[in-house]
């Protein structure tokens, strides 16, 4: 059970949240290859990962989390518009 600091509500147990993986904006123009990458390809790094979670059983807001996928240490969470590029 991870403990995730919702930027709106504070630290809460993982079971209150739903995972959103890497956020990828919709490409405006896309050939089949680009479209396929958008639909199906998401990052799966070993190490730090900037991912999204939503506080489903709380404030229902999406936010970003920077988590190490090898140790599960969460180094930062924050509002979506403050997510590092």
């Amino acid at each position: 059970m991870l403990l995730i600091a919702c930027p709106y509500c504070g630290p809460r147990e993982e079971s209150e949240f739903r995972y959103g993986s890497e956020g990828v904006p919709i490409p405006s123009e896309a050939d089949d290859r680009t479209w396929a990458r958008f639909l199906y390809y998401r990052d799966s790094p070993a190490g730090l990962f900037t991912e999204r979670w939503v506080h489903t059983h709380g404030c229902r807001q999406w936010f970003y989390v920077i988590r190490d996928t090898l140790t599960h240490e969460i180094s930062a969470t924050g509002k979506l518009d403050e997510a590092p590029r």
């Binding site: 919709i26 229902r60 979506l80 518009d81």
Partner: peptide, 13 residues
């Protein structure tokens, strides 16, 4: 509802 909120917050805030 989740779908709607996700689009509004992540793509079209």
């Amino acid at each position: 509802v989740d779908w709607m909120e996700e689009w509004l917050q992540t793509e079209w805030p």
